[in-house]
Simulated scan of single mutants.
Amino acid sequence: MATKKATNKSSNPTISVSLRIDPKTKYLIDLLARDQKRTITGVIEWAIERAAAQVQFDQNSGTYYNDMIDELWSTDEATRLTALALHKPSLLDYDQMRIWETVKASPDLWRSGYMPSPNLPIHAHALEVGIIRRYWDSIVEHVDQFRHSPAVKPFVLTSEQKKEAGISDSNFDDFPDELPF
C-alpha cells in the first residue's frame, strides 16, 4: 500500500504564476510534458533553465544568467535589489531604481568618506549592505514618502539609528570652537 509522503511547504516554497499563451503553445507544452514524462510546470522550468544557459547576462565578461543567479538571488529583498543594482542596474524596474537612486544619494548607507560618482563604477565594498538590510523598511517607506518628488531625497539615519549601527555622528560638535593654530 502506497503512503503519501508529507512535505513541508515552507522548506521549498513555490510561487503560482498565471500565464497567457496561445493554444498552439499550450499544446506544444503538453506534448513536451508527455514526451519527457514531466509536469507542465516541469517543462516550463526546464525551458527557462535552458534559456538561462543560452542568454548572456553580461556581454563583456561572457557570463550567462544561470552563472549569475546564485549571486543575484536572495530571500532578503534588500540584498537581492543591491546585488542586481551592482551587477546590472539596467534590469531594475522603476520602483527599484528609485530605491537604488536613494541609496546612492545617501551618505549614511556608504562607508565613511565614499560617495558614488554618477560617471564612475560603484565600489561594492564601500556599500553598507548590513545597514541597508537593517533599515530596509525605513528606506522603502522614505522612498514612498517622496515618490512624487522630482529629485531623489537622501535617506538619513537618525542619531539613535546611527548609534545602533555603530556609526559615529561626525557633526564636529565635540571639537572646540577655536583651534589653537
Rank of each mutant, 00 (worst) to 15 (best):
T3D: 06
K4G: 00
K9E: 07
K9S: 09
N12A: 15
P13S: 10
T14I: 13
S16I: 10
S16T: 14
D22A: 11
T25N: 09
K26S: 11
I29G: 00
D30M: 09
L31E: 11
R38K: 15
T39Y: 09
I40V: 10
I40W: 05
T41S: 11
T41F: 05
V43N: 05
I44W: 00
I44L: 08
I44H: 01
I44T: 05
E45F: 03
A47I: 09
E49T: 06
V55P: 01
T63V: 12
Y64R: 13
Y65D: 04
D67Q: 02
M68G: 07
M68R: 14
W73Y: 15
S74G: 05
T75Q: 11
E77F: 01
A78L: 06
T79S: 15
R80K: 03
L86A: 07
H87Y: 13
H87L: 15
L91I: 11
Y94K: 08
Q96M: 03
W100D: 03
E101G: 03
P107S: 10
Y114D: 01
M115C: 08
S117Y: 10
P118L: 12
H123R: 12
A124H: 04
A126R: 13
I131L: 02
D137R: 11
S138C: 07
E141S: 12
D144G: 10
F146W: 10
P154H: 04
V156K: 06
T158M: 06
K162F: 04
K162W: 03
K163I: 06
I167W: 02
S168R: 15
D169G: 01
S170N: 15
L179M: 12
L179T: 08
